[in-house]
Amino acid sequence: MVWSPKIVALAVGMAIAVPGAQAAERTLLNVSYDPTRELYQDVNAAFGQRWKAQTGDDLKVNQSHGGSGKQARSVIDGLEADVVTLALAWDIDAIAQKGGLLDAGWQARLPYNSAPYTSTIVFLVRQGNPKAIKDWGDLAKPGVQVITPNPKTSGGARWNYLAAWGWALGAFGNDPAKAEAFVADLFRNVPVLDSGARAATNTFAQRGLGDVLLAWENEAILALRELGGGFEIVAPSLSILAEPSVAVVDKVADKKRNRPAAEAYLKFLYTPEGQEIVARHHFRPRDPDIAKKYAKDFPAIRLFTIDELFGGWQKAQRDHFADGGSFDRVMARK
């Protein structure tokens, strides 16, 4: 048995020594949410070329994807992201507040609330729309099955939830109690709450569950393309302007001496080239010219912002998704 202490010591040594190994080449880590996988594959390639042309340096951007909340949690716990590109501002706020890794005023640092692209929430229904789903009101009818992920864990699901709530406020004379009753009726029709947007799409498309999927617009278009026929997109009369936010994680980027690259990377998203890539991946571009060019890809939906109807993410989170918030009450009513 004399060798075993040596082996233990060696292995423990290895376990501690390994991390230094990756420091040699210049890499950025972009921690993002689920539906941006394809987008950032293209962005990273294009930015890598541009960075090389400008500075002569090679740069590799590594990607991590997952539920927005889970990703933020990992960054707080030490996942060394130079930039985060998450589903909602609230998750980046959490990194600022709980992790202290970036400045609380991060959202003012880049144009358009630090959201270089937007999206909205639409319906994906089965071919021919057999349940005749036209607008939010149809989702709460008996006999309709709605698939949406869990708002507690999924950023997309929170936009879904607020979009439904916002429509109901308009439809029922701005009465929060009536809006809550409507959302409760809607969630009575939800048979499965997946933890993320992608899992919900799989449940709807692959497992054949449900009549309608509430989805990011870009997800719905992608699903239409990737998963073949059998589906169509229904645009509701009113929806929410979803603003996925991006930010440089100051402490990490400074520590890894990556700040110039990290900042250039996020700014690249606002350039015409970046906006083109964004539009090709079915996110709505901010740049007016590019938006005009791709206008036919995006149905005209009346959109409201979270600030207009819910007073920003901090308040929306507290009112609706924190423990004891409206979502908990809705689920208790089921």
Binding site: K70, R73, N150, T153, P191, K334
Partner: peptide, 21 residues
Amino acid sequence: GNLPGVSEIAPLLIVTRLEQY
């Protein structure tokens, strides 16, 4: 299916709680 109160298991709830910070 992960419906809270119906088909949500305890380990998943741990993960959910983590994701809610």
